[in-house]
Nucleic acid binder design. Structure first.
Lengths: 153, 153
DNA sequence: TTATAAAGTTAGGCATATCTAATAAAGATA
DNA sequence: TATCTTTATTAGATATGCCTAACTTTATAA
């Protein structure tokens, strides 16, 4: 089984590969804000579990298995961000939350969120839903500011 | 700071207190499916951090601090379940997912979800949104079954 | 009241994941 | 090519949280 952490590393590797074309331990460390020895340890583990190909002091390459998992996580992440933005979470918070939630959301919930996002995005221009929701959010914002009640929950 | 695990234990304690009126280590162990020594360890930790009052071989009582946090987590949990059910996740899955997500969702996202749930629940009977969404979900279900494509993502 | 059963604790170990300090290998430059 | 800098690894420690086995305390019941 993969842990939350292995997933984070795999996703980072996938992102780096797409962005820079290659992956170095140093870059993973920076991206995940961990020390290089931590990266070394995880590389060993991912390699042992056949998610990556690796030789000491060499390059890091995702196996088919690793790539598949990394893509899945990335898709979950992207979907979560899309969804969070629809319900009014700002980009930055959406990104941060998605990083954590992507490890825990069950396949069934993913399917439901996917359908929700698709449904909303397919709403015809004539649909009043979006603008009603926007209006509702705006009204809520005003009310809350007025009553000065910052519900932390 | 509280860890994910401390939160799980606090929530369990809160639930037991509400359900049975008192809390025993054994019940926590059963509820969380961990061994009794694990519970002993966490009780010590929660006690050291002033989330509960505890004396060896004695009763477990939440402090004001512990109660407050437990209630917050419980609220997050309840909200997540409500939300997940709206987008079509069945009760059981919603409960399971909420148990995990409740630790990671940021306050801002909680606020947004709360507003979304409220908005949907306040939709007038005349609103076509709900039935359109239901219909959409049904249609998707049929299409997926027909094409036999189980997107696992 | 004393033996037994149930509940809780301690001891000791394992797994995950982190860190710093020290060492080794690779890459860049004079 | 030899040196210096960057990058990566190993060694060794810490923290969280889990487990089983053994022991202690409390509660029950004969």
């Amino acid at each position: 089984m993969t842990t939350r952490n292995m997933e984070d590393y795999l996703e980072a590797i996938w992102n780096l590969q797409n962005k820079k074309g290659y992956v170095k331990a140093k870059d993973i460390a920076e991206r995940l804000e961990v020390s290089r020895p931590s990266v070394s340890g995880m590389i060993k583990k991912l390699s042992e579990n056949s998610y990556i190909l690796y030789e000491k002091y060499g390059g890091i390459v995702l196996t088919a298995k690793g790539k598949k998992l990394a893509q899945e996580i990335k898709k979950r992440h992207t979907l979560l961000v899309e969804f969070l933005k629809i319900v009014g979470v700002d980009e930055q918070n959406a990104q941060q939350d998605a990083c954590k939630l992507e490890h825990d959301v069950s396949p069934e919930t993913i399917t439901c969120l996917l359908e929700f996002v698709e449904f909303v995005s397919l709403l015809p221009e004539s649909s009043k839903w979006k603008e009603n929701f926007q209006e509702y959010l705006k009204k809520r914002g005003l009310l809350e500011r007025r009553s000065n009640k910052n519900k932390k929950l």
